[in-house]
Nucleic acid binder design. Sequence first.
DNA 1: CTCCTATTGAACATTTTGTTGCATAGTAGA
DNA 2: TCTACTATGCAACAAAATGTTCAATAGGAG
Lengths: 193, 193
Amino acid sequence: MKEDPRLIATRQTALDAAQRILMDEGVLHVTHGAVSKATGISRSTLYRHWPDARSLRDAAFRRIATPPNIPPKTDGPLRSDLRWLLGVLMGALNDTPWGQIAPQVVAAASNDEEARLVITEFMKDRFASVEAVFAAAVGRGEITADVPVDQLIELAVAAPYFRKLIRHEALDEDWLDRHVDLLCSIAKTNSGQ
Amino acid sequence: MKEDPRLIATRQTALDAAQRILMDEGVLHVTHGAVSKATGISRSTLYRHWPDARSLRDAAFRRIATPPNIPPKTDGPLRSDLRWLLGVLMGALNDTPWGQIAPQVVAAASNDEEARLVITEFMKDRFASVEAVFAAAVGRGEITADVPVDQLIELAVAAPYFRKLIRHEALDEDWLDRHVDLLCSIAKTNSGQ
DNA sequence: CTCCTATTGAACATTTTGTTGCATAGTAGA
DNA sequence: TCTACTATGCAACAAAATGTTCAATAGGAG
């Protein structure tokens, strides 16, 4: 049995609005009242869908934080694969709502189990894609297995997030080039010792 | 002319409470009402000190985000200096309120100029202390000047913050040892090429 | 066409958020 | 100690936000 299309429509328009509010005004302003005013959906309906403010915010988090499917590129060379993958990741931070909403999720995660789940699942996915790139490089023999891959993955992802979310510095092609260069040089010089 | 001690006392107890609320319940719950209930200070007094909710939160941010004075250690060797400095930094993230409050400041910075100032100033201070360590190593001739120091500094600080604030992974001595080892190996192998 | 269900709008109580005026009490200076 | 000053407390208040309930309506499924 299919779900009532009205339910789906309400959820979608409501969460769309919630997401926009989240970006423009911050998590503080994501309330049933604000979403109602933004969408025309009556408050009573919103309360039926999300009983309290937290579940509404969590739903908005979940909606935006589903990792996009990144087309994998692991055919080498390492520098090229890494450049491609981190370029996509950087683009998501720069040009999608995720870049603006991630900080709110990070903050909410301090005292909201659901938000914490959202962010850790998201990061697990990101890490997996970076790991695939390194694993392929090891498989090709481009780097050896004794490279500290886990640390490299963490640095690879940490840098752009730190730069964007915490320092509010630009994430541009130039920076990314240098970042990838450094990562590769670490991988190469630690390889085969 | 000295300031009225009542002003000082009120500010202090109020911000103490605000900070505790910030840690325990999140920025959402830092309100005049909550602080009043927690301290016994009347709401009208709190409103006199901080006209709106934002200035109250900003004041709490400022209070906790003043960088502690880290006793400098730049007498080498690089690994030892770095281990010491990042150990202090890691300790602050693990064992002081800053570790719990930083995420809230990060989130607020998305749409609050004051919060952004707080966090960027804080980071500028952190970066400066790491830079001093590398500069000293260059001065001693332990590494050469063509090491990409700026990138190393960013990685050095980004990793613990990312790990703690975003991934909610443990920051322990063991992890720090490996982190410092990797940083040093980058510095050494990139040195003098 | 009919049954089922989601939405709406209004009314309502409750809580939170700001504001104001005045009495009280603590502070500084003569 | 006396006086002028000012921060606080308190109560009363208006305004807005937050939840809750219910009957009427409109949309979807068979």
